[in-house]
Design a protein around this nucleic acid. Structure first.
Length: 452
RNA sequence: GGCCCGGUGGCAGAGUGGUUAUGCAGCGGUUUGCAAAACCGUGUACAUCGGUUCAAUUCCGGUCCGGGCCUCCA
């Protein structure tokens, strides 16, 4: 199946062609681990997860790398503020990060490299850039010289002149050009520091991704993904470093960027303080519902987060789970060409997950009308979105303060009352359970229950 | 100041140069002791003003409004 992806580099939707059909390579920028992730951070994790699922179905081998940034000024500041070591701050944050991603049903990447474990590769790369004349040393810093690169700015679509004209930042005196950026900088006393040919110090922000991508994916690879806000300067600078160090025309062939999560129309961000952490959202919503909500708008469009939206997603999930249960215990189909063509076409068209979800709902409707095939397709297609895989969706012990055995005893008592046509008593039991978040379902095969 | 992206029915959200998705909510019905679920029916929306066209929500231009990047940020 042909996969089309919108490439930020060309500002067009393009047919995806792998550099090597036998092995597709994908890099996504992961978290800087100084604090819990918020819903905005979660969006790329979820949507690019779906991309990787789709690629895995289409190509024999996919390597998906998602880094962890564990050297950064914000980390240093946060550790100092809390009076904990940088190591323990990072360790704890990574643990929380994995809890969050698991709850959102994000599959693990093939590699999750940490910046601090790749300092040697970064130093080597910086050395190459100096040797090739793309970087220079000044006052203990090493800087990338943008003027020496022909088409610096191509990804973000701005020229050097424009950047300089619009600069809002004071330019460090040791920079030759206002747009030059740091590859290596001296470290203050007490902060993480590594020996280098330019003195003890630490890497700049962008070099880690260049170094780790090259390490695990090669000098040129297929897809580089991340949030819209990384286009400039982060990805622009990654491209500059990688291409100049390796003498290539591309770092990645396709650059994918997800749109922002917004709150009342404004970008969710730490600095605005309008964020909801994933952990917080998980205290009132189920992870799978948050995931579905995130997939319910196109990944490049803004996604306005609200409780109402996630509640709606939960209702849809209930419906999908009910319909999927009509599949009589058959194993989901795995071969992509046996899967529902409408669903696959939607996903393949630049990850049109809203349309794909619409198809899932249509399949659910057909399943409810008696189509076993639709129920099987529903389950099989949902797998591509990491959805509908919770065997205990309606039953997990989420209901407040009531044991499964107690529920079952009450159901028996109610059925006895019903048999005796004591409907007042039967309804009292229904109400009692409803108050505990348990919904009773009377069907031809007896009474079952769901937590609501 | 420079650059970029959007504005679709109560809400969410696709899509299309002419047959105007879909879901949620609402309303009516079928079914059910009740309820839920499910099913059936029901909604002519595409910011605005011009232009192109036999025909525009869809193409082009202006206007208005919103958001974003240029600095850490997914």
């Amino acid at each position: 199946m042909e996969i089309k992806l919108y490439n930020t580099l060309t500002r067009k939707k393009e047919i995806f062609q792998a550099l090597d059909d036998g092995h597709v390579r994908v890099y996504a920028c992961g978290p800087t681990v100084y604090d819990k992730i918020h819903i905005g951070n979660a969006r790329p994790l979820v949507v690019f997860d779906v991309l990787v699922n789709l690629l895995r179905a289409t190509f024999p081998k996919v390597t998906y790398v998602r880094n962890i940034t564990d050297v950064d000024d914000k980390i240093n500041a946060r550790a100092a503020e809390r009076g904990v070591s940088i190591n323990s701050l990072c360790g704890e944050t990574i643990k929380q990060f994995h809890q969050d991603t698991n709850a959102l049903l994000v599959s693990a990447p093939d590699k999750e490299p940490r910046a601090t474990q790749h300092i040697a590769q970064m130093i080597a790369m910086i050395g190459q850039l100096i040797d090739k004349g793309f970087a220079y040393e000044a006052e203990g810093h090493v800087l990338f010289s943008v003027a020496n690169m022909q088409d610096y700015g191509a990804l973000s679509g701005r020229s050097l002149d424009e950047m300089i004209a619009g600069a809002r930042v004071e330019v460090a005196p040791y920079k030759r050009d206002a747009a030059d950026f740091v590859l290596w900088k001296p470290s203050q006393e007490g902060l993480p520091s590594w020996d280098s040919p330019w003195g003890a110090g630490r890497p700049g922000w962008h070099i880690e991704c260049s170094a780790m991508a090259a390490e695990y994916l090669g000098e040129e690879f297929d897809i580089h993904a991340g949030g819209l806000d990384l286009i400039f300067p982060h990805h622009e600078n990654e491209i500059a470093q990688s291409r100049c160090a390796h003498d290539t025309n591309h770092m990645a062939r396709y650059w994918l960027h997800n749109g922002y999560v917004t709150v009342d129309g404004e970008k969710m961000s730490k600095s605005l303080g309008n964020f909801t952490t994933v952990a917080k959202a998980l205290s009132t919503h189920r992870g799978e519902a948050i995931r579905l909500a995130l997939l319910s708008s196109h990944y490049r469009a803004p996604f306005d987060f609200s409780d109402k939206l996630v509640k709606g997603a939960q209702i849809i999930l209930d419906k999908l789970y009910r319909a999927a249960a009509l599949n009589e215990a058959k194993q989901p189909l795995s071969e992509p060409d046996k899967l529902d063509a409408v669903f696959m076409a939607a996903l393949s068209d630049d990850l049109n997950t809203p349309l794909a979800l619409t198809r899932l709902q249509a399949l659910a409707s057909e399943a409810n009308k008696g189509s076993r095939e639709a129920a099987l397709q529903l389950l099989s297609c949902a797998k591509y979105l990491n959805l509908l895989e919770d065997k205990n969706w309606f039953k997990s012990d989420h209901a407040e303060g009531i044991e499964r055995s107690e529920i079952e005893a009450l159901i028996e008592a109610r059925n006895a009352a019903r048999a005796a046509r004591d409907f007042a008593q039967a309804d009292a039991i229904r109400d009692k359970l409803a108050a505990k978040g348990v919904r009773l379902l009377d069907g031809p095969d007896g009474t079952s229950w769901e937590k609501s």
